[in-house]
Amino acid sequence: MAEVDARPPKDVVYCGVCTLPPEYCEYGGTTKKCEDWLEKNHPSLHERLHDSTAAAATQLSELSVDAQKRAEKDAQKKAAKAEAQEARASEKRAASKVIIKRVERNKRKYVTEVSGLEGFGLDLKKIAKEFGKKFATGSSVTKTSSGGEEITVQGDVSDDILDWLLEHHEEIPEDNIEQVEDKKKKGGAAPPAV
């Protein structure tokens, strides 16, 4: 056993879609996508796993017909569920808007409130920290009265935040970002005379 123990660690390939080892992809619910990914990235592995249909058939036949059917049904259900979830997520993504609001705090002092980032799966706490670092101001995650959370950045940095978001988070379409002035006036129109 002594020689065997010196074996170098195994190289393990993980699926880029569902993160499981590819041989378990069939249980993940995104089987089709995983297969495509594998074919593109690890063709040899793909061949071994998917083209050996004969081998798979013999393996499956060990299970009783009944269990096979159940397994298949289960897999289908799972796939449908995963698909629905994904569809919902992308829909939500398209529908959600990032609102950058400039709020007058004290005559010429402003705070900037950014809400809606969570719709794009971003971590508010991390982004708040980033803002704080970037603009060298206070920046925190605050609870809104409606129950959600938003980022409050001290100072008037709405334009800078817009630029930063476009640069660092390309998954947010520009049209989904809205700049709001104070509480009533909308659109990045000319700032009110102070």
Partner: peptide, 18 residues
């Protein structure tokens, strides 16, 4: 996954995987 031979191992049948 990297060092599978270092652990006590048992195996389950196919039906149990899912």
């Amino acid at each position: 996954h990297k060092y599978p031979w270092c652990f006590t191992r048992i195996r389950i049948d196919r039906g149990a995987i899912r």
